[in-house]
Design a binder for these strands. Structure first.
Lengths: 340, 340
DNA sequence: CGCCTTTTTGACAACGATTGCAGTCAATTT
DNA sequence: AAATTGACTGCAATCGTTGTCAAAAAGGCG
């Protein structure tokens, strides 16, 4: 690997001059600079970021921990973060907690030892205490995405979950549904709480008495969504929901499977609306009505926020940004059958 | 940030001893070791990997460049790589070339300056020359995934594309199709070439004269697949294919849209089979017949191979591994209509 | 008790890049 | 012609960690 000393020798100057020629061009004489640049180019010199980071005490690295890279929402989030990071000359270390607090803790440690300048994280159940334990975290800014851990003073980029959920359920109510089931995520996760809250608000607004048997936990995962949907749809006929509102697309995929396995039809027998727009939601038959989240924008904006925090040295107080969701009405929601 | 000197002071020993106590425990006296470990724990010491990497001349970092992180195939690939890397104590820098050679070149440069010990890459059209330009690459082992760039001596983990494609097309032929169209990817990409070759072999094997008008380029992308499908399905009735074989899932999604926009039904009017199994392929109606690739295994295996190359210093000659595909017959393929 | 091994520890020099400081040299001013 | 300025360059220290080497301490043996 070519180092600065090699370029220095080739250009017949000192290493200091090479460094300056490359990073502070106006501090060296034009002809020297040209000689250095040429030598560097010819030798294919690439600065060693490890050494530079060590000396300058800055890594130009950001850490990103998402909870499920295989879910389109998170993949899109990650892309938004990376695009923004690249724009500002940062690299991103991407990890996947799989919603497992232990994995998250491990990755946080591993990450910390690489001296990232900032951290973006989709928190899990224990993120709050993990962040507290990160003693070295000094003033390292942290931005939470999609959910919050409740850590005081932390920044976050979220969506209007309550409103988004309420709109979805109000849409069902407007179609005439009265018995509306919800498949929610882990109750410790704020998105699950907020979406449940939106669901309840909508019911309340319409004067519908909430029935706790119509709310089932799908643990944010496909299998959980499958089980939850089965549970709800196997209620006795007069108690069974005529519509389901699902907290995310993973669980919705499970719910669709369950509905099919029960031999029910969407939307004739059961209306379905879920959070997250995905390719399969668009391609399935009937296309799924969804609450679309601006995943790319969340990631991009979070990273922009982080970078601007890094620019201004003063550790700004935690600010929470909330983006809007959009209800995309497709064919999976319809009037309930009479007497349903 | 706590450094070794801080721990040394707290434990009343020299920095060297702290370093040894942490990395070569049997070289320090038990009581000293205990004192050091305790101090380190108490202060929350984390070794600085930048400094360590610089000193030890090894970063424990791997680079991974995929061509589209939003595609499930690539996301799964990445997960396989990361899981394997983690097992061996490596971190992964993940990038996304978006199939754009310029992006790839930029990321390769950026990556190189972080001194990764090895590189995993899903090559684009210009990877071969990019790798050649990477002068510093010395003996840095490179593993190609999914496709090959044709760089001599490089390792690769691929699938049996010819065979997989042939089986898919033979399945269509067995159903009675004679006019079978193919939507292929960029011809410079080896997977596209090989899958096309499999298609041709299947036709030849069945004594069907290939018709070049039945092959359209979808450029690996959804929009391309849409356009290509339109082109093929708008051929005059007696020339129009009764079945389509699509080179990947992105293009297949476009093809499905095109088929629907034309008011055609799957599989009654047109049979469809594509490479890559995805959630939407399973959930769409009718469920899509696909050639499933072991994406996770490709990633995992590639990373395992890379790590084992790193272990044995000798730069082994390039070896190409090919994994099997599986034809999953679902409902999107059926007998052609009589007189179709 | 002294000599020789073995264990344990600390001082020091790297790794590669950057930067404050000081020195050189030519250009300008007096 | 001497003095002053300014532009440019090199020296040396530094970032945090590790490995080499030698010194110091501890243990073993006659």
């Amino acid at each position: 690997m070519i180092k600065i000393a090699d370029v220095a020798r080739a250009a017949q100057v000192s290493p200091s001059t090479v460094s300056r020629a490359l990073t502070k061009p106006d501090l060296v004489a034009p002809e020297t600079r040209e000689r250095v640049l040429q030598a560097a180019r010819q030798l294919g010199y690439q600065p060693n970021k490890l050494a530079r980071g060590l000396r300058k005490q800055q890594s130009r690295l950001l850490g990103l921990i998402v909870s499920d890279i295989l879910a389109p929402f998170h993949a899109t989030l990650a892309k938004g973060v990376q695009d923004a990071a690249e724009k500002h000359g940062y690299m991103v270390f991407l990890f996947n907690s799989d919603e497992q607090p232990e994995k998250e803790a491990r990755y946080l440690q591993e990450l910390q030892s690489h001296w990232p300048e900032g951290l973006l994280i989709v928190p899990t159940a224990k993120t709050r205490q993990h962040l507290r334990n990160l003693r070295g975290a000094r003033g390292m800014p942290v931005i939470e995405l999609d959910r919050t851990s409740g850590t005081p003073g932390v920044h976050a980029v979220l969506v209007e979950n309550v409103l988004g959920a309420r709109e979805a359920v109000e849409h069902l109510i407007a179609l005439g549904h009265r018995r509306i089931g919800m498949i929610t995520g882990e109750p410790v996760i704020t998105t699950a709480q907020e979406r449940l809250e939106g669901y309840r608000q909508a019911l309340k607004g319409a004067g519908i008495t909430p029935d706790e048997r119509l709310v089932a936990n799908g643990y944010h995962k496909e299998e959980g969504g499958y089980a939850a949907a089965l549970q709800l749809l196997r209620l006795p006929p007069q108690e069974r929901p005529t519509a389901l509102f699902v907290g995310n697309s993973e669980m919705a995929a499970g719910a669709v499977q369950a509905i099919r396995d029960l031999g029910l039809r969407i939307p004739e027998d059961i209306s379905l609306v879920s959070f997250d727009d995905t390719r399969w939601a668009q391609l399935m038959e009937p296309a799924l009505t969804v609450v679309a989240q601006p995943a790319y924008e969340i990631g991009y904006l979070a990273c922009e926020t982080l970078v601007s925090l890094l620019r201004q040295k003063a550790p700004a107080e935690g600010r929470i940004l909330r983006l809007k969701t959009r209800l995309l009405i497709r064919q999976s929601t319809a009037r309930p059958r009479l007497g349903g």
